[in-house]
Amino acid sequence: MNNKHIMVVENLQTYYRTRLKEHVYAVDGVSFELEEGKVLGIAGESGCGKSTLALSLMAFYFPPLHFKVGSILIDGVDVMKLPYEKLRTQVLGEKIAYIPQAAMNALNPTKRIIRFIEDIFHEHRPKMSKIQVYQMVSERFKSLNLPPRVLEAFPNELSGGMKQRTVIAISTLMNPTILIADEPTSALDVTSQKVVMSMLKKLMEKGYVKSMIFITHELPLLVHIADDIMVMYAGEIVERGKAKDVIFDPIHPYSKALMNAIIVPEKDIKNQKLASIPGAPPNLKKVLRGCRFLERCRYRSDSCVSINVDKISEMKHPSRTYRCIFDIDTLQEMYKKESQSDGR
């Protein structure tokens, strides 16, 4: 696989401006690259900034979300520098598509699905006739295992999972380079979840989208779809690596704690003690110094507290990046000791 970087994000900082003119830095200095043909998973608990990151990546800011610094390069073009009209017509939907959590509510209840799609084509491909649109869309729907009768239906005739799949299919009609899926399955039950997941996989296989960013807090999902995983905490990326490595062998204490909260129906889970992380994420209104996970970290030491830097820098390792002052061996030693004392 070639290592062409489709999307390069450099030091992205975005903030919410509150009613009281306070600034909340929900995404604080995020940098990463997205490779062609890869699925990047972003994990983290609620309020860690993962959804804000997804919104920010679209380069389409509306209050209270504002952009501070950073660059987002898609195919070598810095989309932050594009004028609004150009961004709207040439990037959104064409290069980058976004599926929010409750995507199914995007459908207009008074319009048949095909009318909705015709609207999109009217904007993006004005030269295509309605018949051409119908043919192209019904073929696309068929290839994604959606029955073409969906096109003539009103949204209320479809089930939740079906609606979600319809919206995903519609949002990828323009063959966007990047698809950002923000918890696309969290409102669905397990059976529909699986159907949606296999559809996302098919989108990648058939080359309708080149790369995908998949945001979720369900880690078992990420093992099966993502190639790489980033773990976010308090607006920062605390760990990044290959999916299998991050899940089965986490380095950062926060990732470690997240992995301990996984529940799957497998044999030994019943005897395993679930560990929850005490406390809540820090308030991002204040300017935070040093390690952001400090308050809730069970492995913290005096050197963590006394270290006097604005930001813990990322430690690089072959194929892994993480944000902690300890090196890998020290952390793994601590995890080992702990699991022995727990008796598992």
Binding site: K194, S198, L221, I225, P265, E266
Partner: peptide, 17 residues
């Protein structure tokens, strides 16, 4: 069996085909 099959698991492959 189908329900169990639909849940993503950590150590087993998940048939997404």
């Amino acid at each position: 069996i189908q329900l169990l099959d639909d849940v993503p698991k950590l150590h087993e492959a998940w048939n997404l085909g």
